[in-house]
Design a protein around this nucleic acid. Structure first.
Ligand SMILES: [Mn+2]
Ligand SMILES: [Mn+2]
Ligand SMILES: [Mn+2]
Ligand SMILES: [Mn+2]
Lengths: 217, 217
DNA sequence: CAATATTTTTAGACTTGTCTAAAAATTTAT
DNA sequence: ATAAATTTTTAGACAAGTCTAAAAATATTG
């Protein structure tokens, strides 16, 4: 069994690994958990003893298979709870994360299996992120950033890169939601802004927005 | 805000107060939390600083109004989660307590309000215990122990005194569930056992069982 | 009421997880 | 390739929550 703190470290390392593929540095973990590098060194030693990470001084850490599975299970719980909050309790997608951060640590296999069933075995969370299965496997989909689409191309909005409340509420205001079809009408050269069509409406979108929306062609 | 440990102490004191009405002794709290009296003394000082209990050395503790409200809110969450587990996730009534012990500490007013609504604003948990309202008020019902019924009397089974898994599974086996009507056919003098009728069936019940079932006439 | 038993508190220690400051290793730049 | 900058680790401290052992207060009882 892992403590709340250990679980949070595992999850942070898991997310960092999926980005970088190299050994994860003490500093990167510290930044992502808003803690100090010295605290990370201490914890990483403990996780290494528990055989969830490989650690050699000054070399960063990597998750073991066991560590990966453990972390994926926490992510699975986090995302299932997010679906629950949106689908069953009328939360909006910008309200779920903090509560899910708490709920993901509840220990009960039956609870999470039944929740999965209640929700109809969802494959993605409200932000378009995939829900790992019980073995920790994730179905990786070839989604691309809206900013990489060329003029005239279109695709379905399937996820967000930034899932901060601010960004999500901005999307709500612009009526940009997952599942909608977006067509690039124009790409402005001087500021990389886009003119897009969504719901039959024309909309202007900054580079920053386009860099945070995932599309599936 | 209160830590997990502080919340557990508050809840324990709350339950002990509802039984005894006097100042709650260090020892009683220690027993109920399976900890040591010296640990209780330490914590009780902290709770006193936070103004949730009144404490004078060697005199035991009492909850303040604020403490009572805080504790009732934790109990409210515990019982709502128990209802959720039974009604929505197909848990049986002997499986819910340990998970609810974890879920009761999740901090999100919106979560608990929406959960309440999803469940149709239940008034009692799966064991027949009342769910405090948002202000911490509890509707006390005049339920009595089955053992206090006289020969010939009958009533509805509305709760359990012992909610251990063992007892609850025993009741399941005997098909004794909340809401059923029980009639006392006979009271044996030499061992205080009862002969009862339930579902049109005749059943023999020991004194111990009769002392752990609540009836409403 | 005084002796004894029990309860409660205190004192000091330990674990977990964190921090700051300083030392050591590694990386980057001149 | 040295020197400087950065990253990482170590050393020592602290808060929360717990424990054991001993002291102090309270309760029981002959
Ligand atoms: Mn999230
Ligand atoms: Mn998410
Ligand atoms: Mn319970
Ligand atoms: Mn209950």
């Amino acid at each position: 069994m892992f403590t709340l703190s250990e679980e949070n470290y595992l999850k942070a390392i898991y997310h960092l690994e999926s980005d970088s593929k190299k050994g994860i540095s003490t500093n990167a973990i510290a930044k992502s958990l808003e803690t100090k590098a010295s605290s990370v060194t201490d914890m990483v030693k403990k996780l290494s003893e528990k055989e969830v990470v490989l650690y050699k001084k000054y070399q960063g850490v990597t998750l073991t298979e066991f560590g990966k599975k453990t972390a994926a299970n926490i992510v699975r719980k986090h995302r299932l709870w997010e679906v629950f909050l949106v689908e069953k309790l009328n939360f909006s997608w910008d309200e779920v994360h903090d509560v899910a951060e708490q709920l993901e640590h509840i220990k009960s296999p039956k609870l999470i299996n039944q929740l999965d069933a209640l929700l109809g075995f969802p494959t993605h969370d409200p932000h378009g992120d995939p829900i790992p299965d019980k073995e920790g496997n994730v179905n990786i989909v070839d989604k691309i950033l809206l900013s990489t689409l060329n003029k005239g191309e279109s695709g379905v909005c399937v996820g967000v890169n930034d899932s901060s409340s601010e960004f999500l509420r901005f999307l709500d205001k612009k009526k940009i939601t997952l599942g909608k079809i977006i067509t690039v009408l124009e790409k402005e050269d001087f500021d990389d802004s886009l003119s897009i069509e969504i719901d039959g409406e024309k909309l202007s979108i900054s580079k920053k927005i386009a860099n945070n929306l995932y599309i599936k062609k």
